[in-house]
């Protein structure tokens, strides 16, 4: 598999603070890559370094196989980006904004501009937008417009920083469908977010950033693979240890965790002994548990030093 985004020992230092501290990202073609991390963990700085906005202190960035920021002129037309919220010229209409952005760089032929603008507006659900200035748009509409701007060039790689910010639940679902649709069409998506649920629903690979370090990078399926235990729900939890001697890992109210990767076998033993079973599942760690285990406490916390 070819790498679409690759960094080696990427470091960004601000004075004594190492905002990004030697990370090796590896995003492959066809991934929906979830880039997770608490606020202030260095996500946005990393995204900006990928796009050549912030220059690394040391380390390398490769985008679509070429070195950044050296090859920006060749690479960036093939990349769509949404960085830290959308931005547009408030006194112009959405269409005028898209046309201006398209004309501002290479790779967007003027001939097809009008058609492409209409297409992406349609795609993000702003097809019927009128001539009112962006100033009058709601936050959700601006977010959609920002996404439309990212899609203007039919990019091979989408780099999205918190793309569902400001959207209502219906909007979030819509954008998720759109991203999955684009992904089926062959677009690689790099999604930076602090919303675990969003990443869990969308992504195939996950990287977790904590205080500037990449503490985890793996397939989502591997991270949330069954642990080899079975979770049993029963109103008679107190009788389970007697039946499954020595296999009970934990009891929590009506929820019992039992060693054994075959729920059917566990079920048969319990029912055979007359213990009623109301729920049965393989134990899988949630992404939240995986991330919390890998990363430390929230960076927003400011502890008292005594």
């Amino acid at each position: 598999m070819t790498s679409v985004v690759r960094t080696r020992g990427l470091v960004k230092r601000y004075g004594r603070l190492r905002a990004v501290d030697g990370i090796d990202l590896d995003v492959r073609a066809g991934d929906v890559y979830g880039f997770l991390g608490a606020n202030g963990s260095g996500k946005t700085t990393t995204v900006r370094m990928l796009l050549g906005l912030v220059l690394p202190t040391s380390g390398e960035v490769e985008l679509l196989g070429e070195r950044m920021p050296r090859a920006a002129r060749r690479v960036l037309p093939r990349v769509g980006a949404l960085v830290e919220g959308p931005a547009a010229y408030g006194h112009l209409s959405g269409r005028a904004n898209l046309a201006l952005f398209d004309a501002a760089g290479p790779g967007g032929p003027r001939r097809t501009r009008r058609r492409r603008v209409e297409e992406v507006l349609e795609q993000v659900g702003l097809g019927g937008i009128d001539r009112r200035p962006v100033r009058a748009y709601s936050l959700g509409m601006r977010q959609r417009l920002g996404l439309a701007a990212a899609l203007l060039r039919r990019p091979e790689l989408l780099v999205l920083d918190e793309p569902t910010n400001g959207l209502d639940p219906q909007g979030i679902t819509e954008i998720r469908e759109l991203l999955l649709d684009l992904h089926r069409g062959g677009t690689t998506v790099f999604l930076s977010s602090h919303l675990l649920a969003e990443v869990e629903q969308l992504c195939t690979r996950v990287g977790v950033l904590d205080r500037g370090r990449l503490v985890l990078q793996d397939e989502l399926a591997t991270l949330t693979a069954p642990t080899g235990a079975t979770v049993v729900h029963t109103p008679a939890a107190d009788r389970v240890p007697a039946v499954l001697d020595g296999r009970v890992v934990a009891v929590d109210g009506s929820r019992v965790v039992v060693r054994g990767a075959d729920p059917a076998e566990v079920n048969a033993l319990l029912v055979g002994a007359g213990v009623p079973v109301t729920g049965l599942a393989l134990q899988r760690p949630s992404l939240e548990e995986v991330v919390l285990a890998a990363a430390g406490s929230s960076l927003d916390r400011v502890e008292v030093h005594r």
């Binding site: 900006r48 796009l51 050549g52 906005l53 920006a72 002129r73 960036l76 037309p77 990349v79 980006a81 960085v83 830290e84 931005a87 952005f101 398209d102 501002a104 760089g105 290479p106 701007a149």
Partner: peptide, 9 residues
């Protein structure tokens, strides 16, 4: 930032 990632040199 959006002009620069377009990319406008």
């Amino acid at each position: 930032r959006y002009l620069l990632v377009r990319p406008a040199g």
